[in-house]
Design a binder for these strands. Structure first.
Lengths: 133, 133
DNA sequence: ATAAAAGTTAGATAGCTTCTAATCTGTTGA
DNA sequence: TCAACAGATTAGAAGCTATCTAACTTTTAT
């Protein structure tokens, strides 16, 4: 039971149950971009008393409170990313694996305004494959 | 039965059955970014003899032959886009609605190479909401 | 015309996410 | 401390989306 995680949850008005702390301890510190299923498998290793419903509830709770981001980049499954500050993503065409790219990895210049809409965020999505070498 | 669509399918080695032409007539010309379910509902209006399996088969076939693109931008459902040339997308946070943005709507400058990976494509994803006005 | 290949169908199946109702846990105030 | 209430968790059911299957129909080629 990580005290820092407990404090962080409490600071966001989240009651720090054992299950929530276990989920948060993993998903807020990983760089694996896990799916809900992956979170369930991983966390169950350290806390066997855990249901899938709780995993989904907790993930959605963390997303609602802004501690976690939900990404729909690869077809077919949603993954989670604890880096909520602006950054870009690279998606492996073959494996679907997602990698974070720092904000300054891409120079984005002028963005044309879209009449009638307000832009909240921008990200660049790169797709490709692992090199031969 | 649109003759141009028939020719286009044949030119890509696709046998032009009534069902496939009906699906293609809609999905290759729409700017609605429909989901598979939406395609099914729409096309069934003009061709009632149509099963969902055929819709999925045909959509996947069109994607495989490069006539259509599959987009995973909003959580929860995949949509299709007949514009296969490079362009960007705007996603409405509230409705999930997707809009195409022309390639030159955003100036993308330098892109840092990713060691060990080859970049195949790049797109900018903008998110926001409809304006008050 | 006929046989082989390809396409379509309804229904079954599989995977992911949410919902439900019951149970359990934590918190609060006397 | 302890009762009572709110909140959290659970297993299983249910809802969706997408794919698979096996039978049937259509098309193509001979």
């Amino acid at each position: 039971m990580n005290e820092a995680t407990v404090d962080r949850l409490r600071a966001h008005g989240i009651q720090a149950s054992a299950q929530r702390v276990a989920v948060a301890d993993y998903v807020l510190f990983t760089d694996e971009h896990p799916s809900a299923e992956q979170v369930y498998q991983r966390v169950r290793g350290s806390l066997p008393v855990l249901s899938k419903a709780t995993v989904y509830n907790t993930l959605n709770l963390l997303v609602r409170t802004g501690l976690l981001r939900e990404l729909a980049l690869a077809e077919g499954h949603v993954v989670f990313d604890p880096r909520v500050e602006p950054h870009h993503h690279f998606v492996d065409d073959r494996t679907g694996e997602v990698r974070d790219l720092p904000w300054d990895a891409v120079d984005v210049g002028r963005v044309a305004p879209i009449p009638g809409y307000r832009i909240r965020e921008l990200q660049v999505v790169l797709r490709g494959t692992r090199d031969a070498g």
